[in-house]
């Protein structure tokens, strides 16, 4: 997984609550069997004026000039600012894959849906929950100031505004550790292989009906 320490990036404001995973990446793009290439279809229905389908040449599609990510001042943004319950809906990991592929490293919102929260951290994206009032202030600041950038520092768990204001945020210790070090979960879990095998044997004795075959040798 890609490491994350600090992001000093341009902020794009997506002023919408309950941004769902269908909106982040519509289902027709979930047919890919790869993990990459989803960025061009991030927010497809908001970003383009036509209906998207897999394999299209995106450069030939009509852009929606009103959509925030199409506006010149937000080109190259790596920090997405949104409203409450970001990432609700399905478990598709294609949503963080699309955000990451597009270039976002941080999403700031008052709250995130549970499954999306897990999926984002596994793909090197830092989710920063800030209270509604702070998010509202940031929306106003971003809209008022072209080129508004935030400095997001994971190690110290703080966001610094261009005015020098420091906003602290919460992140759980394990996810922070994995993100800072770019660690692969499976490798970490397999360090506990003996504990898993011991548990499995006890579990098999207590509830044999949960096992249909003999364990593979």
């Amino acid at each position: 997984m890609r490491q994350f320490e600090r992001e000093q990036g341009l902020v794009a404001p997506l002023d919408r609550a309950n941004v769902d995973t269908d909106l982040i990446i519509p289902k027709q793009f979930l047919k890919s069997i790869k993990r990459t290439g989803f960025g061009v279809n991030l927010f497809d229905e908001l970003r383009y004026l036509d209906e998207g389908y897999p394999g299209q040449d995106a450069s030939q599609r009509p852009l929606n000039p009103d959509f925030v990510l199409n506006q010149p001042r937000y080109q190259g943004a790596s920090v997405l600012l949104a409203r409450r319950n970001f990432g609700c809906g399905s478990s598709r990991e294609h949503a963080p894959w699309a955000l990451e592929d597009f270039g976002f490293r941080v999403v700031i919102a008052p709250s995130f849906a549970d499954i999306f929260y897990n999926n984002a951290f596994k793909n090197g994206i830092l989710l920063v929950p800030l209270d509604e009032d702070t998010v509202d202030r940031l929306f106003k600041a971003v809209e008022a100031n072209e080129g508004y950038r935030l400095d997001v520092d994971l190690e110290n768990q703080r966001v610094t505004t261009p005015e020098g204001e420091i906003i602290e945020f919460e992140v759980d210790a394990f996810r922070k550790h994995c993100l800072l070090n770019g660690l692969d979960d499976i490798g970490i879990t397999l360090q506990d292989e003996d504990a898993i095998r011991a548990f499995e044997e006890k579990h098999r004795v207590a509830r044999p009906w949960l096992f249909r075959d003999k364990a593979p040798a």
Binding site: R92, I115, D185
Partner: peptide, 21 residues
Amino acid sequence: AHGIGTSEVEHVLATQCLLAQ
């Protein structure tokens, strides 16, 4: 029972476990 992302599908296939809170 709950939904998981694809990285977790791979994690469960490989380890029969999930990291959870």
